[in-house]
Simulated scan of single mutants.
Amino acid sequence: MLELHFVTDPQLTPELVDELVDCWTDVSNAGGSVGFVPPVTASDIRETAVAAFARCGDLDHLLVGFDAEGRVACWLILGDAGSWLRSHWRWVLRVMVHPKHQGRGYGSQLMRAAAEASRAMGVEALHLTVRGGTGTERFYAGLGYTEVGRIPKAIRLAPGDDRDEIYMVNRLSLQS
């Protein structure tokens, strides 16, 4: 398994934003469950991406895994829970590994880096949702996440193609 270099809240230069948007586009077009349905272009994603990145460094935190050449290999956002009553946990959003890096263990490395960064911030639990029908809940279960709820047919990909939204949590405070 190749090692990645992880950076929390890297400087969002125009070049890095372009690389993150390109990754998001490629992941979406490869069928990844990251908020879009293929086919999409970078221009389709850019507005959503720029809005998401604008919150990073303050309320949310961007975690990027760079490969040996210094290119974006994977990334996610640790999202603010929206209330001081929930300040002890974060949402894990937009988890993606570039398709050319699939099968190398980068997703597991990314999620472990997210847990480590979250613990360093004093976060006790990470929450995420997955789209039913993709099998990703098995991946997250293997990393310590537990299904805590499900909303049937909450996600509509196309007429007649509704999927469950599955809620999962990883209680970091219970792990060493």
Rank of each mutant, 00 (worst) to 15 (best):
E3D: 15
D9L: 10
D9M: 09
D9V: 10
P10I: 07
Q11P: 05
Q11G: 02
Q11Y: 03
L12N: 10
P14V: 06
E15N: 08
E15P: 02
L16G: 02
D18C: 01
V21P: 07
C23E: 09
T25P: 00
D26E: 15
V27D: 03
S28Q: 10
G32P: 12
G32H: 08
S33F: 08
V34F: 08
V34P: 11
V37P: 01
P38G: 04
P38E: 08
P39M: 08
P39F: 07
S43F: 08
R46M: 05
E47D: 13
E47L: 10
T48F: 11
T48K: 12
T48E: 14
A49P: 00
V50E: 15
A52I: 03
A52Q: 11
A52M: 13
A54Y: 05
A54I: 01
C56Y: 09
G57Q: 12
L59Q: 13
G65A: 14
G65R: 09
A68R: 15
A68W: 14
V72N: 08
V72K: 05
A73F: 14
W75L: 07
I77Y: 00
I77M: 04
D80T: 01
A81K: 09
A81D: 12
G82E: 01
S83M: 10
W89L: 10
R90F: 01
V92I: 11
L93R: 09
R94M: 13
V95F: 07
V95R: 00
M96D: 12
M96H: 10
V97D: 09
P99G: 09
K100F: 08
Q102P: 01
R104I: 05
R104C: 15
R104E: 15
Y106C: 14
Y106Q: 13
Y106P: 05
S108W: 06
Q109H: 08
L110I: 04
L110T: 10
M111V: 07
R112F: 01
A113P: 13
A114D: 02
A115S: 13
R119F: 04
R119S: 02
M121W: 15
M121Y: 07
V123Y: 03
A125K: 11
H127G: 00
L128T: 05
L128I: 06
V130Y: 03
V130C: 14
G132N: 03
G132W: 06
G133K: 03
G135S: 07
T136C: 06
T136H: 13
E137P: 07
R138T: 09
A141Q: 15
G144R: 06
G144C: 06
G144A: 08
Y145T: 01
Y145W: 15
T146S: 12
V148I: 15
G149N: 03
K153R: 14
I155H: 00
I155S: 00
R156K: 11
L157G: 05
L157Y: 02
P159E: 04
P159F: 03
D161I: 09
D161N: 06
D162P: 00
R163V: 07
D164F: 10
I166S: 03
I166H: 06
Y167G: 03
M168R: 08
V169G: 02
R171S: 01
R171M: 02
L172V: 04
S173A: 13
Q175G: 00
Q175S: 07
Q175F: 12
S176R: 14
S176F: 02
